[in-house]
Design a protein around this nucleic acid. Structure first.
Length: 419
RNA sequence: GGAGAGAUGGCUGAGCGGUUGAAAGCACCGGUCUUGAAAACCGGCAAAGGGGCAACUCUUUCCUGGGUUCGAAUCCCAGUCUCUCCGCCA
């Protein structure tokens, strides 16, 4: 969420910055509401002052007047709240402003490749897709998931289940030991307030799975990514400067309705309602966001290097970025069956956008209270890593060679083949 | 499910109708002292919002929402959350 004070300073510039994201915002209304809001505040405060003085004077002759003022104040508060609510609705639906480094564009076609690494595998046969491989091994079962649950779910069985677990553990260990992240095993449900903090609510409610608890308390949602719950660790806090940066890693299932993507990637496990992901979150001083983004992206890339998978890194254009991001790198892994790169990680700096929503702050050297910077990135998507390994390490007979770094996590298994 | 206790500033923790935005301690920042550090001593230190170019100033805030009162952290009602004990489940 944007800071109204900042917007007010240079309203035209704010408008211009958001043009890059091609969003539909009623700027005139925003400006108008802000002015009205402040008018009401001023009126209210002057009455409050008057009332306070009567109370201090303890002059009985003025007590009845004080009562009248109270009524007037109530009216003003009512009116002011209505305006404030309208203002907040508009404000909470405005996305973050792209950083100046971000290329301007409309969609993924305008993203710019900044790095390419690894050798594409050469096959003397036609490479199969991950679902063909998994099904013929008898270790990916989509039909069974349809029977028990519905579409866009999968049963991962046997050695592929072990592989999935190995991938997750390998990534966690790397980030914890080598990259200095603290491991967290978080709740998989988040309150509506938490979902608001990272920007999933109110705008993207339709993408979320809501859980009904019996008690009439606030709403709960299955987390669409561990980013939500990890970032909100600092919600409503003023963090000690000495404890920053905070770096968290978690491996969790993620749940997404994927509304609006019907018909896309319907085959296989590229796009599922439930998938595992190892997530990285950093909480940093606000001026260190971009440095941390480079660091975080390198942590994600590290995994692909160790797994010896070919990939490229792209910087997302303004139109393709997520709601809360100021700058995003996607890392895409090579998928032989599709003959193209597919997203396996997305690392974003959200500047202070989420911090304002969460009220997450710190005190700097000068004892000023500032909003923190927040970053999140996949390190990596486990399901898609599984896919990438299946496809890139496949053999002519349909077996899969296990990447060297994963073998210690799989009882030194070197090859996955039909039992 | 039954019975209690509680929710106060970055943290711990007093206050229980009228300069209390809130004692004290810790933490933090500045200074004195010291060869340097520590200790000791002195001073500063809540947040949000409004007005002002600024110095500054005003308002709100002691879990949330109502109520009583000229006046509420303090009294009343409702709610949320946390803790302890008993039961239940693993």
């Amino acid at each position: 969420m944007h800071n109204l004070k900042e917007i007010r300073k240079d309203f035209e510039n704010f408008k211009k910055c958001l043009e890059k994201r091609s969003v539909d915002v009623d700027f005139d209304k925003l400006k108008d509401l802000d002015i009205k809001n402040r008018e009401f505040i001023q009126k209210k405060e002057s009455l409050e002052k008057e009332k306070k003085e009567i109370s201090k004077s303890k002059d009985k002759a003025l007590f009845s007047k004080s009562k009248e003022i109270s009524k007037e104040i109530d009216k003003l508060i009512d009116q002011q709240n209505k305006i404030k609510d309208e203002l907040d609705i508009i404000l909470s639906n405005i996305p973050n402003i792209p950083h100046k480094d971000v290329p301007i564009g409309e969609n993924e076609k305008d993203n710019i490749e900044v790095l390419k690494s690894g050798n594409l595998p050469k096959f003397d046969f036609k490479p199969k897709s991950h679902y063909e491989l998994g099904e013929s091994l008898g270790m990916l079962d989509f039909d069974l998931a349809t029977k028990t649950t519905g579409s866009r779910f999968v049963f991962v069985k046997d050695k592929l289940a072990l592989l999935e677990r190995a991938i997750s553990n390998f990534m966690l260990d790397t980030h914890i030991v080598k990259n200095g992240y603290q491991e967290i095993s978080p709740p998989l449900l988040a309150s509506d307030n938490t979902m608001f903090g990272t920007g999933q609510l109110p705008k993207f409610e339709n993408d979320q799975f809501e859980i009904k608890l019996d008690k009439g308390s606030d709403r709960k949602f299955l987390i669409p990514t561990a980013e939500v719950i990890l970032t909100n660790i600092v919600k409503d806090k003023i963090i000690d400067l000495k404890s920053m940066p905070l770096r968290f890693v978690a491996s969790t299932p993620c749940f997404r309705k994927e509304a609006g993507s019907y018909g896309k990637d319907t085959k296989g496990m590229i796009r599922q309602h439930q998938f595992y992901k190892v997530e990285l979150v950093s909480i940093v001083e606000q001026d260190k966001c971009l440095d941390e983004l480079e660091r975080m992206t390198n942590c994600a890339i590290d995994i692909l290097d160790l797994l010896e998978l070919p990939y490229r890194k792209v910087i997302l254009c303004s139109g393709d970025m997520g709601f809360s991001a100021e700058k995003t790198y996607d890392i895409e892994v090579w998928l032989p069956s599709e003959n193209k790169y597919r997203e396996i990680s997305s690392c974003s700096s959200c500047s202070t956008f989420q911090a304002v929503r969460m009220k997450a702050r710190y005190k700097n050297q000068n004892n000023e209270t500032l909003y923190v910077g927040t970053l999140n990135g996949s390190g990596l998507a486990v399901g898609r890593t599984l896919i990438a390994i299946l496809e890139n390490y496949q053999q002519k007979d349909g077996s899969i060679t296990v990447p060297k770094v994963l073998r210690p996590y799989m009882n030194n298994l070197e090859r996955i083949s039909v039992n």
